[in-house]
């Protein structure tokens, strides 16, 4: 992730308005070769809108996009040749066979005609649909259609791969496989993926941008996100638990809630670490503390925290 590596995508100040409704506001993304950036956000945060603008499916109201130094608005065809895009719904033709569809994708993406079948084979192998190659896409399950969608996005070995919620609709095993695949792709190409699953971002991305109501509210390396999540919330279990009001008055700088019987979630509202206070109070009031773990903030808490900051 050093700056010496090539900048493959640079989007600056992307804004998109639908009438008075602003779907994306001043979103900027820089992507370097070999990097995976995650766009994280709740539904309707503007992830898909941003991706549509980057891929030329939607014209931005303001701002510009450059793919490997080529301006998307001035030279759309040359810029698009360097992008592979998987939209939210896999853009497959149900009446075509997997082979036929990927051949079409390869041709449309300027793969030299001699190399088309080689590229199709390679892409099928990478996403694991080789044994389904003669099947009609319409007869495949959602998971396989999703894989075919990913295959069409990587068939021409693009510099930038843009995946909109690539693991939606897959079963847990397939999710792990696809995550592995994305990590591999991230070594040679650069990838942007969107998701609303925090764990997914932590599992595969190098950097994360969190969108909320169309604006970027967090933009940092993945270690920054971990730091942000850790140390804020503590889970504590007591053998002879106090009631919630008692605990709350004992720990004035925190927000307490019950997880299950005897187990509490304690969120620090100041920067001070409440751990030692909890231990001391437990001994003083003989609550019999038996469990104390630094729970990581959930995705909702992160969103809540970030949006509190931004507003």
């Amino acid at each position: 992730m050093t700056s010496s590596q090539a900048l493959t995508l640079s989007a600056s100040g992307l804004t998109r308005k639908y009438g008075n409704n602003i779907a994306a506001k001043n979103v900027s993304i820089d992507l370097y070769k070999g990097q995976i950036v995650g766009l994280l956000g709740p539904n309707g945060a503007g992830k898909s809108t941003t991706m549509k603008m980057i891929t030329g499916n939607l014209a931005p109201s303001e701002g510009g996009v450059q793919i490997c130094g080529i301006d998307l608005i001035e030279k759309p065809l040359d810029a698009k040749a360097k992008i592979g895009y998987l939209p939210e719904i896999p853009p497959v033709y149900k009446e075509l066979r997997v082979d036929e569809y990927l051949t079409l994708a390869a041709r449309l993406h300027r793969v030299a005609s001699k190399k088309v079948s080689e590229a199709v084979n390679k892409a099928e192998e990478r996403v694991g649909v080789t044994h389904m190659r003669r099947r009609l896409i319409g007869s495949l399950s959602k998971g396989y259609q999703q894989r075919v969608g990913i295959a069409q996005a990587i068939i021409h070995e693009p510099e930038v791969i843009i995946l909109d919620e690539p693991t939606v609709g897959l079963d847990p095993n397939q999710i792990l496989e696809i995550r592995d695949l994305i990590r591999q792709l991230g070594n040679e190409h650069s990838v942007i993926l969107s998701t609303h699953i925090l764990q997914e971002v932590e599992a595969i991305c190098d950097r994360v941008q969190i969108l909320h109501h169309g604006s970027v509210v967090f933009n940092d390396a993945i270690s920054g996100l971990r730091q942000f999540r850790a140390g804020k919330t503590i889970q504590a279990g007591f053998r002879t638990p106090p009631d919630l009001v008692e605990l709350q008055t004992a720990l004035p700088d925190t927000v307490c809630s019950i997880v299950r019987n005897g187990v509490f979630r304690i969120q620090a509202s100041s920067s001070e670490d409440p751990t030692s206070t909890i231990v001391r109070k437990s001994v003083e009031c003989s609550w019999n503390l038996y469990e104390l773990s630094g729970a990581q903030a959930s995705v909702e808490e992160v969103f809540a925290e970030l949006t509190k900051q931004s507003s």
Binding site: K80, A81, H109
Partner: peptide, 14 residues
Amino acid sequence: RNQTMAFLISAPIS
């Protein structure tokens, strides 16, 4: 309707 327009538009064709 099938959202395949994005497939054509994001390909390098006009």
